[in-house]
């Protein structure tokens, strides 16, 4: 089972620990997840803890849809609270998750939550446009990402979508810690 979400989903799935094998993409808001890839040069020299740097690089390269398709999980579980809790930054013609809102990212160290700290972390000189759930344009942008882009992607077979009961099949229970730590692998990202 592949999870996309933050602590709410992490805690919910924790109740099924030992009964399924799971991996978790930490937050990865829909708008950034479905946006087109960017070159690494879209940001400056990153000054972030290693896990955050990897998170941002993977976000720029948009490696996750292909990784989700190749993951082999027979169900994808995601929640929308991550879209509420994690704003996005406009870079070029794309979006990335606001790295200063990655609260709870394991290995993330101390993540600056102020705008200037975020700029230093990304090596940027000026603040890129930000979009949060409070903005009027949020829902339409999200709808384009989750609806339009997702439909186009899924129609091409980019990945499995939260499985219906008719498509689910049982997965043998995995002893805790044998393939994944208890509660999954927050922050997991391929590449």
């Amino acid at each position: 089972m592949l999870l996309i979400g933050a602590c709410s989903l992490h805690e919910l799935i924790g109740n099924l620990a030992g009964r399924l094998h799971k991996s978790q993409l930490w937050r990865r808001p829909t708008i950034a997840l479905m946006a087109p890839a960017l070159p690494d040069s879209a940001v400056g020299t990153l000054a972030a803890p290693p896990e955050v740097e990897r998170y941002v690089r993977d976000d720029l390269r948009k490696v996750h849809l292909a990784a989700i398709a190749a993951n082999g999980s027979d169900a994808l579980v995601f929640e929308f609270i991550r879209d509420i809790a994690t704003g996005v930054l406009r870079l070029g013609e794309s979006w990335i998750a606001n790295p200063s809102e990655l609260i709870g990212l394991p290995g993330g160290g101390t993540i600056p939550s102020d705008p200037s700290g975020m700029l230093r972390m990304l090596g940027l000189e000026s603040a890129p446009p930000m979009l949060s759930f409070r903005d009027d344009a949020f829902l339409e942008t999200w709808r384009e990402g989750s609806g339009g882009s997702a439909r186009r992607c899924w129609s091409r077979g980019c990945g499995a979508v939260a499985g219906s009961s008719s498509t689910m099949r049982a997965i043998p229970a995995v002893p805790s810690g044998s393939r994944a730590p208890p509660g999954g692998t927050p922050g997991w990202s391929p590449g």
């Binding site: 509420i84 759930f133 999200w142 979508v161």
Partner: peptide
């Protein structure tokens, strides 16, 4: 926020093969 979530969930219901767990 709850109103926004409700709209997002309503949008998600349009997607195929999706179960909503509320």
């Amino acid at each position: 926020m709850n109103a926004l979530l409700a709209e997002m969930i309503a949008e998600a219901r349009l997607l195929p093969g999706l179960d909503i767990l509320s």
